[in-house]
């Protein structure tokens, strides 16, 4: 698999380590109402879709940036990659 790194261009997926569903970016607020339930969902429960999946990859043997990669779990086709930082900032901005 080749991951289209937004800064470095196409890179072999072997240079990356895989973390999981990109929803891991949305860490719940530990002080909010229902935090226990929110953390259970965040840490343990997954959509685990058969099809398009947004997921976190770490460029460990590269520039050490975190990416959000969009990939089809049925075919392994990679549909795009963004800096996780940009995704997280956009999400924060959107939440305000």
């Amino acid at each position: 698999m080749l991951i289209p790194h937004p800064l470095l261009g196409p890179r072999d997926a072997q240079e990356f380590t895989y973390l999981g569903d990109a929803s891991l970016l949305n860490r719940p607020d530990g002080l909010a109402e229902g935090a226990l339930d929110a953390f259970n969902r965040h840490v343990y429960l997954r959509d685990n879709p058969a099809g398009v999946h947004r997921e976190l990859w770490f460029h460990e043997q590269g520039d050490r940036s975190w990416l959000v990669v969009t990939r089809n779990t049925l075919t392994h086709e990679i549909l795009g990659a963004e800096l996780a930082r940009d995704v997280a900032l956009a999400q924060k901005g959107g939440a305000k």
Partner: peptide
């Protein structure tokens, strides 16, 4: 395992 979500 290969290490990434897959149904392939």
């Amino acid at each position: 395992i290969d290490g990434y979500n897959s149904y392939a």
